[in-house]
Design a protein around this nucleic acid. Structure first.
Lengths: 120, 120
DNA sequence: TAAACATATGAATAATTGTTCATATGTTTA
DNA sequence: TAAACATATGAACAATTATTCATATGTTTA
């Protein structure tokens, strides 16, 4: 006796199978969709957004960013790691100082589209 | 006796004040940056990404989407509410059924930029 | 009007995540 | 080489969030 109670009733009656099938055939691979969501997750934090906006203007060291955002060095460093792992920033070392800068050309387009949307 | 221990040492010595000041002057308003992060947060979930991709192909009812993604009706309905609140989808009622469709023209550009980035 | 059904929603839970604190790493300079 | 310093990182904690379950809302039809 299989228990099918968890399956909503509408699955049997309401579903428009032709539509579902057509859409299903055109969906990108699951791994791509997961990667995409993970990528956008990076933009879903205000600190990271601020860091990226700052780097639009100039390359900056960790301390500079920390002061600009009025946050401590550790928090910024953790977030820079996330940005680095997602290939959104690159860095160069100059003595003790590490300068970060933007590594991606899509960020500005994405931000502008987002801005257009929220300002509409 | 003020306690300044929480302030990292580098704030006093390493910070490049000219850069910080210049960048600070060009930063968008804080409220905009928060709104932007909140907006991108919507794309940071795989279920919502899938729903939006599905709606690229066709308008769909809640049950259709639930079946397509093999999730229950409640989960989909909750996520559609988030998308609705962020003005990314719109809906029309036809009897008992509610059909959802895309409400925004920026989504495709944003997704494509994201795809280009992760496939690079 | 009552039953059937598609969708919406509140509450609870589990999982994820941003920040802080403490400390480690790596570079410079005295 | 030791001290000073900029940055990185692990662990812990607090806050956020996606899903599920139970149930409510709103529409149709018998």
């Amino acid at each position: 006796m299989e228990n099918n109670n968890i399956i909503d009733r509408c699955e049997e009656t309401c579903v428009h199978n032709n539509i579902v099938e057509k859409v299903d055939n055109n969906m990108p691979e699951d791994t791509i969709l997961y990667d995409l969501a993970d990528f956008f997750k990076v933009f879903g934090d205000c600190t990271r957004i601020k860091v990226l906006y700052a780097l639009f203007e100039s390359e900056m060291c960790v301390c500079d960013i920390a002061q600009l955002l009025n946050m401590n060095q550790s928090a910024i460093s953790h977030q820079l790691r996330v940005l680095k792992q997602n290939r959104l920033v690159k860095y160069r070392r100059e003595g003790k100082t590490v300068f970060y800068s933007l590594a991606d050309s899509h960020i500005k387009t994405i931000f502008n589209q987002g801005l257009e949307h929220i300002l509409e």
